[in-house]
């Protein structure tokens, strides 16, 4: 890219960036459409041609969303479900990961192989017995059903083990010599050391839980127990075509994840990418 090539390189750069920016436009456009629609009264949405900026900022959709629908409750349900699953899965994963990374015990390899073998199995395999189990336990329409079955995430054990393998064993031995209990070692040495991988796991589990759709669809049918993924679509009913409210709700449902993302971009991307790494 020196000398005579620099001009053609410059031209290519402009073209390349124009194409990329068009891609960005296509990516962002649906979000802008959503936000724009959420500030329009119902009838203005159907006007042709589409105008991005509403004639005047209409906040009626938000008023209705918070005042006349169960949105706040759904938001709370989603938050509770996501936090519950995340907390449980992070703690259990980290404990098991520590067991696998730093101890030798009988059946260790067998159990680890079992985890690897079951990792690729799709959730659809277990859907039917798990659903029957929820009925048997009387857990339909309960937080138990939303949280507990997702408390053990094999991928978390993998990520945690991978990370903890790098922790020097001498450090733990030294603590043992000093008379620290095994739980004390876990709690006071492993947990602080594992902060980065804990954050990765937490983001992965939280965003998966926040998006979960099929499981709530099966085990929740009571409006007041809906997470957002069920609540929002329920707004398009036989009586309403209120897309404005729908878009307001969609925007509000996306906002928390967006904020977390903006605060901790790098770790967030790491967390999502880790989700697909299997085996």
């Amino acid at each position: 890219m020196v000398g005579s090539r620099s001009i053609s390189a410059r031209v290519l750069q402009v073209i390349g960036n124009a194409v990329l920016l068009f891609g960005v436009f296509l990516t962002v456009m649906p979000f802008l459409y959503m936000i724009s629609a959420s500030f329009k009264p119902g009838n203005e949405l159907y006007t042709i041609p589409f105008r991005f900026f509403p004639k005047n900022m209409y906040i009626g959709n938000y008023q209705q969303l918070f005042g006349q629908t169960n949105f706040v409750r759904w938001f709370g349900n989603s938050t509770f479900m996501a936090l519950g699953r995340t907390a449980l899965a992070v703690v259990l994963s980290l404990m098991a990961a520590y067991g696998f990374a730093k101890f030798d015990f009988r059946f260790k390899n067998v159990l680890f192989l079992l985890l690897i073998a079951t990792l690729t199995l799709p959730i659809y395999v277990i859907l039917i017995p798990l659903y029957s189990m929820m009925i048997g336990f009387g857990w339909i329409n309960s937080y138990w059903a939303l949280i507990l079955p997702f408390g053990a995430q094999a991928i978390g054990v993998f990520l945690g083990r991978q990370y903890l393998l790098g922790v020097p064993t001498e450090m733990l031995e030294a603590a043992r010599i000093d008379g620290a209990s095994e739980w004390g070692i876990f709690w006071r040495i492993i947990v602080p050391i594992a902060k980065p991988v804990t954050a990765t796991m937490a983001i992965l589990f939280f965003s998966a839980a926040w998006k979960d759709f099929i499981w709530p669809l099966l085990v929740i049918n009571d409006d007041s127990m809906f997470p957002l993924s069920l609540g929002l679509p329920s707004l398009i009913g036989p009586y309403t075509q209120e897309y404005g409210i729908l878009m307001a709700g969609s925007f509000m449902a996306t906002l928390p994840i967006l904020i977390i993302f903006l605060i901790m971009q790098r770790r967030f991307i790491e967390g999502i990418m880790a989700g697909a790494v299997k085996g």
Binding site: S229, L232, P233, S250, A253, I257
Partner: peptide, 11 residues
């Protein structure tokens, strides 16, 4: 990737 499938589908 930050957006849930429900929101994506509604949009």
């Amino acid at each position: 990737n930050l957006t849930s499938f429900v929101v994506i589908a509604l949009m």
